[in-house]
Every structure is written in C-alpha cells, then in structure tokens.
Design a protein around this nucleic acid. Structure first.
Lengths: 194, 194
DNA sequence: CAACGTCTATCTATCGATAGAGAGAAGGAG
DNA sequence: CTCCTTCTCTCTATCGATAGATAGACGTTG
C-alpha cells in the first residue's frame, strides 16, 4: 500500500464520514493531495473499490481501538465502545463510517454494503461475547451509539451524544454538561465543522 | 399543493430514505411520474427547497403518528415511538428520513439541515414531556431507534431492529424472533428491497 | 529493460438549473 | 356567448459543471 493510496483512503474516509458515499469525488480527493483524478484510478480502479477498502480498514482499526484491556470486567466494555464512538464526533464532527454507510446502504454498490454488514456482524460478535453472551444487549448498545452520533450531528452539539449514551452505563454516570446548553437556538449543524 | 407536487414529494421522500440526499435526481423523479425534469423546478425551485419541504412534511406526519392516545400512561409512549420507527423499515426497508439526513447533515444545504435539527428538537421535546420530563431518556430512546434502523438495514433483517429496540421497554417484552435468524450468512443489504 | 506512478487528453453520462415557447383552464368584460 | 387576459403547468433546448472512467505517453527508479 503506497503512501499516496493511504492518503487517499484517509481523505475518502473523512469525506464519507462527513457527507456519505455520494458526498465526495475522485477529483476532490486528488486535488487535496496534488494529483489528477485519473491517477486515483491507478490506486483504486473504481470508487466502489476504494470505499470497500476504506470500510475494511475501518473495521480493523475499530477492533484495535476497542480491544479488551487486561483486567477488563463485565460492563467495562460499554465504556470502551462509547469512547470509541465519541472520538468520531469529538475530532471532526463526523459520523461513524459504518453508521453512515449503513444508513445509506440502500444506495451503495454491493461490495461496499457487504463490508458494512461485516462490520456490524463483527462488532456484535465481539461486544456480545464480552458482555457475557447477550447478543440483544450488543445490538442495543451499538444502535444507541450510532443513533447518538446522529443526534449530535443534527444538534451540532457533542453534548447530545453524551445525553443519549449516558444511560448505557447505569452506575458510574459521568457528570453531564448542563442540558441548558442544548436548549438555546443555534445555527444548525454547521457548528460542528467550525 | 398540487397533486404532482405531492407525488414528487412522495417519491423524493422514498428515495432519500433509501439512498440519502445525494442518492436521487430530479430526472429520476420526473421520469417516474411521466414529466420532464425541467417541470420539477416549477414545483420546487431547487433540490434543497424540495428536500426541506419533504422534511417539514415528515415532521408533521411523524407527530401525528405518535400523538398521545387517550389513556396513555407513563412508558407507553416508548412503544408508540418504537412502532412508528419500525414501520419505516417494515414497509420498504428505508431509514427514518431524519435519521438518514441527520447522518448526512454535514453535506447538506443549510436549509435542509435546519429542518432536520428542528425534527429532533421537536421529537425530544414531545418525548421528554410524555416521559415525565427526562430529556436524557428522550435522547437515549431516539438514538436507539435511529440506530436500530441502521442495524436492520446493514443486516438486511427487520429482526435486527427488534433486538436492538427490545430493551427500551423492560417489562412487557414482546416475543422476539429467534436469534438464529440473524446468524446465517445472507446476501448483504439487498434483501430488504426484495 | 521493466515496474510504478503520474500525466494529458478525452469520453460518455449525468447533474441541477435556466430561458422561453406553448397548451390549456379560469374567469371577468364586452 | 365570445373575446381577451391571466395563471398554471409542461414542454424543448440548452447551459455549465461535474461525475467516474479509459487510453496511452512520459519520466523515474530499481
């Protein structure tokens, strides 16, 4: 994997997390790293190939990010997952790649949709196992975290994520930002990109 | 509002719930109802205008769908919301419009993003009030339901929605489809559209 | 020489949008 | 009743921009 290809994947991932599969173009990525769009096809024959590769890498990195810590017990895993998802909106206000493409999956090339399906199967598998076998709980946790990202983006407030995800862990409830923050009338979803 | 404009909004809503804002074109909608794409601009000057109008109508209908029943008490409202969201994936395998556009909000025209933000503010307001004032709980419920739709689409299985949303109501747990259904290796997200 | 990576040049297809013409219904004025 | 105007809606034709993709030449590196 050449350095250029990695840069292209970085940019593609960032743009897909921001605006979805149809929200970026080869020309846009190429311009950002100073090459021509035709050259992008040398690294990724088609856009679907590129998106599938990005999704594959995303799953790998995700599983590394949520890898069990020595001494982890019981429900600690939920806090680990929550932190991983929160990082997504913290850093650049973007969605989880799989959440975005999962929503859009009805309009994706088949090979991309398959990678996304694989992401959720692997995530459910990992989470359910570490939660003691409850697949139902794993589904609920993942759903809440993906949805919490949507709310945070719609509100343009990271705090919305925290509110939505707070109930996932009952006891060690972290202090929440004041709800009043979410009640003033802000200027749409533009804010997160500032 | 002319009959043609309503048909256009119906189609636009369907396509946006399936593939997102960038996932459909005026030409596509026009062809489906037998007019030319130029004529669509007579009803909606720009694509952003159309999407904003669709989002506004979606909120109205949503609030009607979840309107309180006489005699509703306490946590009944969660089952009402769950049913409303489930209908989305039941009927045509599509997302909730606001969930889709909320995810994509980083790449939307400002007027569309504002309608989506308004949707969630109104939904949180309604839900929190009927839940006895807990905004945090309202956030969590909405997030879980939106995320449950994403999972159902990624899996290509409506049952995934039920698993993800099951824990929202503790007691009157409805019988779930067997988990085994979700463990066989299916053919991507294509299935829901069948 | 051979591979790799980028280039120029170009293709076909599609996008949202606009200008201006024309068909047809509605409705008031004579 | 007929004429004329106005409004609504769709049309043809076209614009400029952009999309993903391809063929083939060129230089660099090993």
């Amino acid at each position: 994997m050449s350095e250029t290809a990695e840069k292209l994947m970085d940019l593609a991932e960032e743009r897909m997390r921001e605006a979805g599969y149809h929200g970026f173009s080869f020309r846009e990525l190429a311009a950002k790293i100073g090459i021509k769009s035709a050259s992008v096809h040398h690294h990724f024959p088609t856009k679907a190939d590129m998106a599938a590769a990005v999704a594959r890498r995303y799953l790998e990195r995700f599983l590394e990010n949520v890898a069990p810590q020595p001494g982890e017990s019981g429900e600690d895993v939920i806090a680990v997952y929550r932190s991983a998802f929160r990082r997504s909106i913290e850093h650049d206000g973007g969605m989880c790649l799989s959440g975005m493409l999962g929503a859009e999956s009805g309009g994706l090339p088949v090979e991309v949709a398959e990678e996304i399906e694989n992401f959720f199967r692997k995530a459910v598998e990992d989470l359910a196992q570490r939660l003691g076998g409850s697949e139902e709980r794993a589904f609920a946790v993942l759903a809440t975290l993906e949805g919490a990202l949507i709310l945070a983006r719609a509100y343009g407030e990271v705090a919305a994520f925290d509110h939505a995800a707070a109930a996932l862990t009952d006891n060690d409830a972290p202090p929440l930002m004041p709800l009043a923050l979410l009640n003033r009338k802000p200027h749409a979803a533009e804010k997160l990109r500032a």
